[in-house]
Nucleic acid binder design. Structure first.
Lengths: 348, 348
DNA sequence: ATACAGCACTGAATCGATTCAGAAGGGCAG
DNA sequence: CTGCCCTTCTGAATCGATTCAGTGCTGTAT
């Protein structure tokens, strides 16, 4: 068995407290004794205070939990999520804090258990949709919480987000300005368990996921202003936030009669999937959201939001809580980035 | 103060053990009592057993540590590292195990402290270079350890790697076969603290980092077989594993008189940087290593190694230790992927 | 009726440290 | 010489659970 602090104390002939101090509060004992203790520890193969025991007694862990509502392994395939995580990591690094990546089971009960079992001092939740039950579990634990969506944040939570609606409005206004009137909007999981493909959505405000809701509403705003009513807009559901899912969902729409002249996607990954599917439809305008690295290469018109910065701020909000709770609510600026994937509507 | 298990016990009028059982071993008490306990817990706002206390008592944590020897935030910029991490995440997910990403301070002493303070059941170390002291800290703690480099693994450690030397030999043989005789090899931190640019390295075996050493040696093998002695080969040091670092390091070499006709890099990221720098040198053949996504787009000839698979196996080695220690040493296959970045030497 | 098994629950020990009030001893001023 | 402060170290309480050897009790086979 690995030696414990007590064993070291016995070996040196001092009290347990003193050995503890040798590690955690060097000023509490003479340098000579400390050296002797550390020496004995080395000789015995004592690896230093047990992190778990220390955390229990101290009441904090030195780690923050990072949650992606989708599967963890999947989060790594989303470039925006990766950059967000990198930002969180940067700040955590400065604070000497570790990042606990908690895989969330699909099953709600087990997801809750996963949250309950995470040894962390707080959570950063990268919101993608229906994370309400997970957020509830975190609040029940009384842990500080930072989310990436204002709508998902409770009164006591901090958040760092963007004005989804305004951002979406800006791309949509650009597209409408190019003359597009027959448009399709593409989003991941518009409604829970909806099949891939066109979908009837009475009102953009009916979309349950706050981010999707905000973006769809913004799209609707701009087109309404251009004289296109919501009912004239096709909403397409993708079964997952991936290129392939987007391609599969949009293909039938493009192949139908009276296809849209523009597709506005709720993420770059989806937009890239649309471009994949649009091979035979060169006239199609496509827009994305986020401005990931691939977007630039693909010439995708999109809305840029600062990814790493979002992560950094989220972590900072958690690790350096602002004195004034009002400062815990951050909205980041976004930019419309116009590239080659959008153009004037092609009259045929 | 948050209620504890004891508070719930008092409220219901049962012993602490029974409440504990209600959570962890439902078969140890009657369903009725269990319901009553869980109910009282909910009423009191008891969030379930404290993860830290539970870990202490149980003796395990339910998390594995993942270490990148470079800075954590930097690890996310390396596509290969991200895919490796995704693989680790997949397996961890299946095991209901969390991933603790530990930021490693540059400072050796603090790096050791970071390892000592990590509450985990084992470590996966993504080796990039001089991690020996970190590995030592892990072994001192008596924790199981999986590395990605056979050379870095101690007798008790598991590893999942590739045959670096053979893999490197395969690309180099390809390049030599195309007739290239004036070649440069590019690697990150060939020697500690070496400046960016050409470097004198008496023997490839002198490179301190095992991975770099293996690759350089493999390159040397192939060229030696083609009649090119090591002394005729230029070794170029990059100050970091990034495109920009590669560009900066190789530019003067390409601009010099008697520039190489081929540059073999020790990673794709470096190779892409060489391509960036090679704009004015269209005749240059360039090879990378790893086959990340960008490599395909850039038409980079490289050696493919399975990234996610490496991560999955590393995690599996940690979470499902093989009965026979011999099965803890895995070497994965690699493939030479020839694309357009290499071609026959251009006689000028 | 007797013994034995099994169920439901309790008590006490334990995991490995931190913390803080206080004790012992030494040095210095009055 | 006495009193007081300071430094150095100790003891005991504490963090919040898990675990396992029992203790009653009920029910069943003999």
């Amino acid at each position: 068995m690995k030696p414990t602090l007590q064993d070291v104390a016995n070996a040196v002939g001092v009290s347990r407290s003193t050995v503890s101090n040798a590690y955690s509060r060097p000023d509490q004992l003479s340098a000579a004794l400390r050296a002797k203790i550390l020496d004995a520890a080395r000789r015995l193969g004592y690896p230093g205070p047990d992190p778990t025991a220390r955390s229990l007694r101290r009441g904090f862990v030195g780690a923050i939990g990072v949650l992606f509502t989708s599967e963890l392994s999947y989060a790594f395939t989303d470039p925006f999520a990766v950059r967000f995580l990198a930002g969180v990591g940067q700040v955590a690094e400065q604070h000497g804090t570790s990042l606990l990546l908690v895989p969330l089971p699909r099953d709600r009960e087990r997801a809750r258990a996963a949250v309950d079992n995470a040894a962390v001092d707080g959570f950063c939740v990268y919101c993608v949709g229906d994370e309400e039950h997970v957020l509830g579990a975190i609040r029940d634990r009384g842990l500080p919480l930072v989310t990436t969506a204002p709508e998902a944040a409770g009164p006591a939570d901090r958040f760092v987000g963007i004005d989804e609606r305004a951002a979406a409005r800006s791309v949509a206004a650009h597209v409408a300005g190019l003359g597009h009137r027959r448009v399709a909007l593409l989003a991941d999981t518009v409604l829970p368990d909806a099949p891939a493909g066109p979908l009837r959505l009475a009102d953009p405000a009916d979309a349950p996921h706050p981010t999707t809701r905000g973006r769809l509403t913004g799209f609707a705003d701009a087109f309404a202003a251009a004289g296109v009513p919501w009912s004239a807009i096709t909403v397409v559901n993708a079964a997952g936030n991936s290129r392939a899912a987007a391609t599969a969902a949009i293909a039938p729409v493009l192949a139908g009669d009276d296809p849209p002249t523009a597709v506005l996607a709720c993420s770059d990954v989806l937009a890239l999937g649309v471009l994949d599917a649009a091979g035979p439809h060169p006239g199609l305008s496509v827009t994305g959201f986020d401005d990931v690295a691939e977007a630039a290469e693909a010439g995708l018109t999109t809305v840029r939001q600062p990814a790493e910065e979002k992560g950094r701020l989220a972590a900072a909000l958690l690790l350096e809580p602002p004195a004034d709770p009002a400062d815990g609510h951050l909205l980041l600026p976004t930019d419309l980035v116009v590239r080659t994937s959008t153009g004037p509507v092609h009259r045929s």
